[in-house]
Design a binder for these strands. Structure first.
Lengths: 200, 200
DNA sequence: TAGAAAAGATAGTAATCAATTACTATCTTA
DNA sequence: TAAGATAGTAATTGATTACTATCTTTTCTA
């Protein structure tokens, strides 16, 4: 029984830890999240964390893995629901925005990890995720070009970069306003301009 | 004489401090820049910093002020050189990218400050700067719409957001590649798509 | 050029951090 | 149900942080 047991199993505890970090990252600067803060939110002592993770970096690595898995799965689902590449692109965009709205700490953590000079395990995880993301994105863009939906002379490399940057811009704007939901509201208008830029 | 003097005057020392922080931010995670690291780079002891700044936050505030002044001045110069709004937008974009290339730590610091939950003095400074930036941007966009250069039905709010996001996307890409100069190379292609999205 | 004022050095402080320790509570299963 | 395995606690560690008190050197000025 989950509800009656005081102690969680190791894998459950790891899962809870990861979710707690994602939650905290939505409320404060991710780089200032301490192991003590994580433990407190979980209702557990600080030292207990190190029964399940060798060190703090391993926690962050697990978080990045969690994010990567969930985001890419969402993206895939959005893509597969649409036959047209352009429609799929829009669905992918909205799925991404929706994901970030639900987990506002995620883009902050990603950006934070990328800023670290040394290439840590979590940083490599982020790079890997963006690689996978870009791959799907470029495939859609090239499909659209071949399809005729997109500008035949489209620079797909730049278009992919702009796509990701667009989401990043929405995130930054929501940070400025201190309002996460703003993103969902602004997304359609911004994507409309992007779409106009790549359409055939 | 500057060269012969061992001690700098207070205002000079403050200036050097700010420039050192900007420099360090280009090399490492801004949130991990310690007062000891700043002092070491300046060839001065850590305690000496507190002769010129009441605390660390004041240093960061000064840095943000420095950034704000320099960036907005550059933007203004770029705008004033061009009569056409669309040409001015492009010049503004390139000036911004150029500035970030010269000071790669700047966007990292901005983003980092915005992430802090509490609204500190440096955070307010950043918000003020982006406000000024957006103001100039929207003026140009509206001018372009009135002019006929831009899409008459353009959503200028979204267009402004996308403009800033585009720069942000370039920054992120350069972080991923670990190569700042990549940004300058990618900028024209990305702006071309943006331009296509807003043009009349 | 004396000496006051400014700038910097030296040597600390208290607080906070991730990590580790010795120990206890709880669960599982043979 | 006894015994081993697993999960968590409480206290402490050394390192690092921003910041400060006191002393020394440099620079400016009257």
């Amino acid at each position: 029984m989950k509800t009656t047991s005081k102690n969680l199993r190791a894998d459950e505890r790891r899962e809870v830890t990861v979710e707690t970090v994602v939650e905290l990252a939505g409320e404060q600067n991710p780089s200032e999240i301490t192991t003590a803060a994580i433990a407190k939110r979980m209702g557990v002592t600080q030292g207990a964390l190190f029964r399940h993770f060798p060190n703090k970096e391993a926690i962050l690595s697990s978080v990045m893995e969690w994010v990567s898995k969930r985001l890419l799965a969402r993206i895939d689902k959005a893509i597969n629901k649409n036959s047209s590449p352009l429609a799929a692109l829009e669905a992918m965009f909205m799925a991404h925005v929706d994901f970030v709205c639900k987990h506002p700490g995620v883009p902050r953590m990603l950006f934070g990890e990328l800023q670290g000079a040394k290439d840590s395990a979590p940083k490599r995880m982020v790079q890997l995720m963006i690689e996978g993301y870009s791959f799907k994105l470029k495939a859609l863009l090239e499909e659209g070009v071949a399809n005729g939906e997109l500008n035949p002379e489209l620079d797909t490399q730049s278009a992919a970069l702009l796509f990701i940057g667009t989401v990043q811009g929405l995130v930054m704007q929501s940070l400025l306003a201190g309002d996460v939901k703003k993103m969902r509201k602004d997304a359609p208008g911004v994507f409309a301009i992007y779409q106009r830029g790549i359409r055939g």
